[in-house]
Computed example of a mutant assay.
Amino acid sequence: MDTAIIFDRVEDRSTPQAVTLTIRRRGALVLAQATWPAVEVGGLHQEPGLEPERPVPDALRSAIEVVNRFRFDRIVVDIEDAGLWDERWGVLRD
């Protein structure tokens, strides 16, 4: 991932106008899941979204696509342990 991207760490997974990327350890794997609230785009209502858990780089790419498609303000990260964050994914800001 582009290390110029800055992500904000949050504890509240219901952040309005943001895609939330939840990162958790699942056994030996670190996986992420993107979720987002309902939104109006071009006068059309879009239901809230929930993607399946997948490797973090794949989930980040998907979250960036969702931000661009539905015009969310940003991506926030809910991560159980900041030590799981890999700096190659970008900058995680508290």
Rank of each mutant, 00 (worst) to 15 (best):
M1V: 11
M1T: 14
M1D: 04
T3K: 14
A4V: 11
I5T: 04
D8S: 08
R9P: 02
V10Q: 11
V10S: 02
D12N: 03
D12M: 05
D12T: 08
S14I: 12
S14R: 13
S14H: 12
T15Y: 15
T15P: 01
P16V: 10
P16W: 03
P16H: 07
P16L: 07
Q17N: 03
A18F: 06
A18R: 13
A18V: 13
T20M: 01
L21S: 00
L21I: 02
L21T: 00
T22M: 12
I23V: 04
I23Q: 06
I23M: 06
I23S: 11
R24K: 08
R25T: 01
R25M: 01
R26F: 15
G27S: 14
A28N: 03
L29F: 14
L29E: 07
V30A: 03
V30C: 02
V30I: 06
V30R: 02
V30G: 01
L31D: 01
A32M: 08
Q33V: 04
A34K: 10
A34Y: 07
A34Q: 10
T35Q: 15
W36R: 09
P37F: 01
A38I: 08
A38P: 07
A38E: 14
A38D: 14
E40M: 12
V41P: 15
V41Y: 05
G42L: 14
G42K: 14
G43C: 08
L44C: 09
L44T: 15
H45N: 15
Q46N: 07
Q46G: 03
Q46V: 09
E47D: 10
P48D: 00
G49E: 06
L50D: 04
E51H: 14
P52L: 02
P52Q: 04
E53N: 06
E53H: 07
R54C: 10
R54L: 03
P55K: 10
P57V: 02
P57E: 04
P57K: 03
D58V: 03
D58Q: 15
A59Q: 15
L60I: 08
L60P: 00
R61Y: 10
R61N: 03
R61P: 01
S62M: 07
S62R: 12
S62E: 09
S62N: 12
A63C: 11
I64P: 05
E65W: 15
V66S: 01
R69P: 02
R71F: 14
F72Y: 08
F72D: 10
D73C: 08
D73G: 13
D73Y: 05
R74N: 09
I75F: 11
I75V: 13
I75P: 13
V76S: 09
V76A: 07
V76D: 13
V77M: 12
V77C: 05
I79Q: 02
I79S: 03
I79N: 03
E80D: 12
E80K: 02
D81T: 02
D81N: 09
A82G: 04
G83Q: 09
G83N: 07
G83M: 05
W85Y: 00
W85D: 00
R88L: 11
W89Y: 10
W89A: 04
V91N: 15
V91M: 11
V91S: 08
L92F: 02
L92C: 06
R93Q: 06
D94P: 10
D94C: 01
D94H: 04
D94F: 01
